[in-house]
Design a protein around this nucleic acid. Structure first.
Lengths: 252, 252
DNA sequence: GTCAATACTTTGTCATGACAAACTGAAGAA
DNA sequence: TTCTTCAGTTTGTCATGACAAAGTATTGAC
């Protein structure tokens, strides 16, 4: 039984050399469209690099880079001596580095934020350690209650070094923390998170409109920007009945 | 005040052209060692690509690839017109795709597995949907209790398509599921996970040696191999008092 | 002294060419 | 038939060369 994998010759993909968009990215985007639309089905092998490159009028390294881009996103798989195959029709992004607020906006869940507390104070040892800064450095400490669809969803505590960003209660009520960070030119690039669970204390239960002892998801996170500077430390609790974390992983 | 970033000229890095290890990987590994050992400190800029390449006797693309490798791992950051800077002394791996068993072995926590149930059955609608296979396809359904350090840690349910791997109770008692998959030539490459929390049912509490209503971490996962075939669906509960998930994220 | 224009440095993108390594499948030998 | 060998295909690695774009530092004008 010869399992002849269907060969889908990629239809005329044109590259625009006048565009400021890099060629490899143009090629990758076009390939992604063809795969997402189903014109190149799962299991199909795409044209080999050399032919594809010559037909598109670009060099092989450029083609390789485009394919590599999709391989890293989990859509394609390459095998030496065999070819490149479509394994998944959708982009599997790695775990995204975004704020809860952004996620809720994207999901159309009408987020609202109530700032319960905001103050400046020297970092405690625990916070300083998490942010990898000297103990006693001035940070802004905030406590926020996040609502979605009119219901409380999460109780969030954050520490942000004062020299990163001055924060006001008004800004925080209307925007997500990550949006404010980005707007100030601080782009979070690396983060470590720990996700756990525990039972709600009575005060947490009261604030979150849960019963005492209800299960909560806990998440602590430290985020750094490109320059290696710590941007924020967060310690949050989510109502497990209303929220869960979704992750897409891919192993090299 | 001129903040002159210290310039650490990389010491003689030699590449071995007789080795089967790719040159870019040799360079990356050597750089990584220098950074992890602290010889190139955090904040320091490394030599520019052109000089580094000529001094190592390799081409610039090879050097770039080595640097790119470390950028993707979160150790280095590049800026056009500026240079390449060390931002973190340790490798920040993306979320790893490994089994709990492997993690416990690596952490020296003496894992032990008790297979509570193992049977073959047609996939239910929910399982078939998760695995993206036709409903009714034969799967192996297993229920395992995982111990660490002599204490129960997690109650795990898995479904594995029968044509992926025949499983025996003995194998599962002595090896992690992912180890068995790998040994059979099925390498998990992509997975989607959902992490949540809830209170333990009375039977779960009894099995896990927790009080009734104790908080449990829940994780459901579907994993696919390179070819796009679904390998396993898992639905697990962990004692929140003994376990949490750690993630390292990096945003492009 | 302050600001704008210019030169320089460094990474980003792209082309061309070459050989190596892994896999497939067909032809040939036992 | 069954195994081995070999040729062909396809991706993996590497070199060389060139120009573009972004940021930094210097110079010069006012």
């Amino acid at each position: 039984m010869t399992s002849s994998t269907p060969r889908s010759p990629v239809r005329p993909v044109e590259v625009d050399r006048t565009s400021p968009v890099p060629l490899y990215y143009q090629v990758a985007t076009r390939l992604q469209e063809l795969i997402e639309s189903g014109e190149i089905g799962v299991g199909a092998r795409i044209e080999n690099e050399v032919d594809l490159a010559s037909r598109l009028g670009v060099s092989r390294p450029t083609t390789r880079r485009a394919i590599q881009y999709l391989v890293e996103r989990g859509m394609l798989v390459r095998k030496r001596g065999v070819g490149t195959q479509v394994v998944h029709p959708k982009v599997r992004r790695p775990v995204e580095l975004s704020s809860l607020y952004d996620d809720l906006v994207a999901g159309d869940r009408a987020p609202r934020t109530e700032v319960l507390d905001i103050r400046q104070m020297p970092a405690s040892d625990a916070i300083a350690a998490a942010l990898e800064i000297p103990a006693g450095t001035e940070v802004t400490w905030i406590e926020r209650l996040r609502f979605a669809g009119g219901e409380p969803l999460a109780l969030m505590h954050n520490a942000i070094p004062l020299d990163v960003l001055p924060l006001s209660k008004e800004d925080l009520a209307e925007h997500g923390l990550y949006e404010l960070l980005r707007r100030a030119g601080h782009v979070p690039r690396i983060a470590t998170q720990v996700i756990g669970a525990r039972s709600a204390t009575s005060s947490e239960a009261r604030i979150l409109d849960e019963k005492r002892g209800a299960s909560l998801l806990t998440m602590t996170r430290t985020a750094w920007e490109a320059g290696g500077r710590a941007l924020e430390y967060g310690s949050h609790v989510y109502r497990a009945s209303r929220y869960s974390f979704e992750l897409n992983l891919s192993a090299g």
